[in-house]
């Protein structure tokens, strides 16, 4: 999406809805929370577009997304949450189950639950980088920290993740 065009709300939903959803899912490990977040973000985008001035759209969008996420985390502190990932489990009823498929499912479950063990600051940067695909600068913009801090959080986050994963690479 070009920086000097103001997208419509539908454009945002179509182009970024899936990324926002995956961002939220990888941070929370919960489909319902992820859906709630997409809804909330699109709501805020809709309100915000009226006053949006062309600039770094990605930075703007991910700042909104991140703030919506942090708000939901604050709210969720008051209710119990399930720490276990509830997804990535593929129904294998209708297909054969070659070892590779099971292994890949297990791998993504492992990664997901390891992600959930990272401190939020690290998890957030890692997810923005490796799931959403933002550059360090875009992450810095979204999270409002220096690029050097982004770099060190991504590094430490991945390294910590590596330590949490038990599979032999």
């Amino acid at each position: 999406m070009s920086d000097d065009l103001i997208p419509t709300w539908e454009d945002v939903a179509r182009s970024y809805g899936r990324k926002i959803y995956n961002f939220a899912y990888r941070l929370t490990g919960n489909r319902d929370d992820a859906s709630d977040l997409v809804q909330e973000v699109l709501l805020r985008v809709r309100k915000g577009l009226a006053s949006y001035t062309p600039g770094s759209f990605e930075g703007w969008l991910w700042r909104i997304t991140r703030n919506a996420f942090l708000d939901s985390v604050r709210k969720a502190k008051r209710r119990p949450t399930s720490p276990l990932p509830d997804d990535d489990r593929i129904s294998l009823v209708s297909s054969p189950s070659p070892d590779e498929v099971l292994a890949s499912v297990r791998l993504s479950e492992d990664i997901q639950s390891a992600l959930l063990k990272l401190p939020l600051d690290f998890r957030e940067c890692v997810v923005l980088c490796d799931v959403v695909g933002l550059s360090y600068e875009e992450i810095a913009n979204a999270v409002d920290i220096p690029v050097g801090t982004v770099r060190s959080r991504i590094h430490r986050g991945r390294k910590m993740l590596r330590g949490l994963l038990t599979w032999p690479l």
Partner: peptide
């Protein structure tokens, strides 16, 4: 490994 995580599809009701 992180980048191999599948991109899940958001529910249709949310995302056209």
């Amino acid at each position: 490994a992180l980048r191999s995580l599948p991109m899940l599809r958001a529910p249709e009701s949310l995302v056209p």
